[in-house]
Nucleic acid binder design. Sequence first.
DNA 1: CTGAAAGCGCTAACAG
DNA 2: CTGTTAGCGCTTTCAG
Lengths: 344, 344
Amino acid sequence: MRGGAGLMVKITDVARHAGVSPSTVSYALSGKRPISDDTRQRVEASIRELGYRPHAGARALASNRSNVLALVVPLRAGIHVPVVMQFAVSVVTTARQYDHDVLLLTQEEGEEGLSRVADSALVDALIVMDVQLHDPRLALLRSLERPSVMIGFPLEPAGLTCVDLDFKAAGELCVEHLARLGHRAVALVGSPPEVYVRQTAFAQRVVEGFTAAADRNGMVSSVHPCEADPAAARAAAERLLREQPALTGVVVHNEAVLEPLVEAFEQLGLRIPGDLSVTAICPDELAGSLRLPVTSVAVPSAELGERAVQLLMRKLNGSDSVPEATLLPPRLTDRGSTAPRDAL
Amino acid sequence: MRGGAGLMVKITDVARHAGVSPSTVSYALSGKRPISDDTRQRVEASIRELGYRPHAGARALASNRSNVLALVVPLRAGIHVPVVMQFAVSVVTTARQYDHDVLLLTQEEGEEGLSRVADSALVDALIVMDVQLHDPRLALLRSLERPSVMIGFPLEPAGLTCVDLDFKAAGELCVEHLARLGHRAVALVGSPPEVYVRQTAFAQRVVEGFTAAADRNGMVSSVHPCEADPAAARAAAERLLREQPALTGVVVHNEAVLEPLVEAFEQLGLRIPGDLSVTAICPDELAGSLRLPVTSVAVPSAELGERAVQLLMRKLNGSDSVPEATLLPPRLTDRGSTAPRDAL
DNA sequence: CTGAAAGCGCTAACAG
DNA sequence: CTGTTAGCGCTTTCAG
C-alpha cells in the first residue's frame, strides 16, 4: 500500500484515482486555490488510500521552497550542552508546527557550510547560535538573500534579525535583587576565560549589566571568570572568600560550576542564604534541581527556539514588519538562596 | 558573483561558460564518467568563477538521492543529554565526510515522522537512537525500503542493522574488575526506574551483565535504579550503606548521579577507593572531569555515531556485506577509584 | 471551481 | 571522451 524508494505513488496516480487533474490534487494539498468540498474529499480519500507523499525534491524544485531550516549549533568549550540541546529540540518542534524540518549543522563547518546549504537551496532559512560580538558570519548572512535569525546580539546587528535573553538586564536584575536585600559587596562568577576572549556577546553583556547595577547601587563588585569544572569552582570559592571577606552576594553565570560552587561555599563553612546569598543565570531546570535550589534568572532556551522559528516564518512569508531585535526580558525566580543582609 | 534565491547560477550557465555540455559539467562534478584533464579544469574554473552550487532539490529529483540522513534523537527522562549531543555531532561530522547532511527529528514525532521523511524522499536513510527491547518502530523500519541503523539492540534485531556498546559486557567488565581486586559484595546503581519500565535495551543489558558476572564470581550483588537527581543519589548512598554494610564495590550506570553519589559516599565517611571501590559506565569526559576521577567503561558516543554513518553509507552504496550487528567491546580505564579489598 | 501544459535544474541513458 | 535529450514529480501560470 505504501511504496519504498522505487515504487513511489505520485501525484498523477492520485489524480487518476480521484478522477481529477494533477493540479487539483496539488491545490487540494496546498490550499492555494478554492476546491469544491466534494472534490477535496475525493482527493483526500485517494491520498489516504494510496498512501501518497509528495516528493520533497520535486516540490522544492518546482516551488523554490524546501521547507527545511538550517540550525547551526556551537560545539566549543564553555557552552552548556543541555541548553543547546533544549534549544535544538524547541526549534525542531516549532518548525514542525509550520510544516518545516530542520537540518543540523555544526559551527565547525563555518561560513562555507552556511553558503553551501543556502546556495544549494537545501534550506529556505537559517538559525545561527552562539553569536560573537564581531562574528565573521555577519557579512555572509547579510548577503545571503535567504532569511536568517541569530541567537545572540553582535555589536552591529543592523540588517539582521536577532533574538536573545536580555543578558545585560539579567545581570542587572540579579544585582538589583541583592541590592534590595541590603547587600553591599557582590561578585560575579562568570564563564570560562576563553568565552570572554572570543568576545561572546552574552557573557560580555552579563558583565556589563552586573557592573552597571553594582555601580549604580554603590556596591563593591568584582568579576571572576571560571573554568567549567568542579576543581575550578572550588578554587574560585576559596579565592572569593579569601580576597573579599565582606562578600555577601554572588551571581553565578556558568551552568557547569553552579552546583560545585554552592557545595564548596557550604563546605567552607558558609550557610546559604544565611551567610551568603547566591543567584544564578541559568536554565530553570538546573537551578531547581540542585540539592539547595538557587534563586535564578532563567535562560529560556525553549522560548528562544520558538521565537527564532516564528520570526523566520514571518520573514519567509514576506511579512514586512519583522523586528530586527527581540530581547526577552529576564525573569527572576526566588528559590530561597538569597536573604536580607540584615540577617547577619 | 554569487546568487541568492532568485538569481541562481545553473548548470547550463556553467556549461556555456566552460564551452561544454551540461552533462559534462554534471559528470565532472560526480566523477561518474571519465573527463579529460583539460575539460575538467575549465569546468572547475567556471564553477568557481560563477559560484555555482547544484540545486539540491533538482539533484534529488533527478538522481533519486537527497544526500540527507535522518537522525532521530530521544528526549525522554533518563537519557543523558551530553551523550545524545555528542552522538549527534559525530553523526553530522561523519556524514559531511561522505557529502551528506543530517536532518534532525525528535522521538516525539514517532513513527509518522519516520514515514514522512522516508516516503517523501527527504532523506536517503535513517539513524534511530534509544531503541527499546520491543520497539514499536521496528516493523516500520523493516518495511521502509530505505536503509536504517539503530543505536541499541532490540530483542528481535533480525533484518535490521544495529550498533551499540556491548553493555552486557560492560557490566561484566566492571564486576570482573572488582572481583579481581577481591571484592565480594557489589551493587549496581542504575538508571531511573522509568528507563527499566519502558524496557530500554541498554539499561537492561547492563543489569544482565552485572548480575551474571557477580553470580559467576560468587559475589553478593544487588541492583538499585536511581532517579537522575542529587537528592536521589544521596538517598541511594545512604540506603546502600545501611542495607549492605559488607558492600565494598559499586558500579554506577547513571551519568546524572555519578558525581553526587561519589560526594555522598565521602560525606558519609567512606574514603574512595580506601573503603569503597567505585566504577562507572559513562562517557570518559564525565568520569575524568570529576574532583575524584572514576574508573570507568566508556560510552563511546562519538565512535557510535561514526560507525552508524559508515554502516549507512555502505548500505546506500549497495554493499552487500553490511553486518547486522556491531557490538563495540567495552574498554575500562583505571582512574584510581578502585583498590584491592585486601587493603581493608 | 477545474484542466492542460510549461517548466523548475539536474542526471543518466543513449548516441556518437 | 563528449553531446543530446528525455524525463524525475511537482507547482503554477494560463485558459476555460
